[in-house]
Amino acid sequence: MNLALWICAGLLAVVALTGGISKTFVPKEKLAAARGGGWTEDAGVGFVKALGILELLAAAGLILPAMVGIAPVLVPVTAVCWVLLMVGAMITHGRRREAGFVMLNLLYLALAAFIAWGRFGPGSFIG
């Protein structure tokens, strides 16, 4: 169980890091032109950058607290926050009729839900 949770957290952290870097450092116009980035046309630059920073924090929050042994409860808390972020992403892509991205976000949501369930429950770092 522990290995599966670490693998899922690692995969999700890579997704969050990749998305966070692109949203934080790539110009909005370039993001809008990329596949799946059309939603940025309707969003302000500050909003896109804020999402990017949240994703960078999520990448760190899924791995670092457990790795360094400081406040490991932040791992499942971060996973719950990722679930909420993916609900928003699914709504956004759903409104744009981008079913493929809705399904991808659903996969990420499922990974985060597994991490939250596992780290709050049977694979908890506490105890």
Rank of each mutant, 00 (worst) to 15 (best):
A66H: 11
A66F: 12
A66M: 14
V68Q: 14
V68N: 15
G69V: 10
I70L: 15
I70A: 15
A71T: 09
A71F: 13
A71D: 02
V73P: 00
V73D: 01
V77Y: 04
T78M: 07
C81R: 02
W82A: 15
W82N: 13
W82K: 07
L84Y: 13
M86C: 15
V87R: 05
G88P: 01
A89V: 13
M90V: 06
M90Y: 05
I91R: 12
I91A: 13
I91Y: 12
I91D: 10
T92V: 14
T92C: 12
T92K: 11
R95P: 00
R97H: 12
E98Y: 06
E98D: 12
E98N: 08
G100M: 09
M103P: 00
M103W: 13
M103T: 09
L104G: 01
N105S: 08
L106S: 14
L106E: 03
L107Y: 03
Y108G: 01
Y108I: 04
A110E: 07
L111C: 04
L111R: 00
A112L: 03
A113L: 12
F114T: 13
F114D: 03
I115K: 03
W117F: 15
W117L: 15
W117M: 11
R119Q: 09
R119E: 11
F120V: 04
G121Q: 05
P122K: 02
P122W: 06
S124A: 10
I126T: 12
I126G: 02
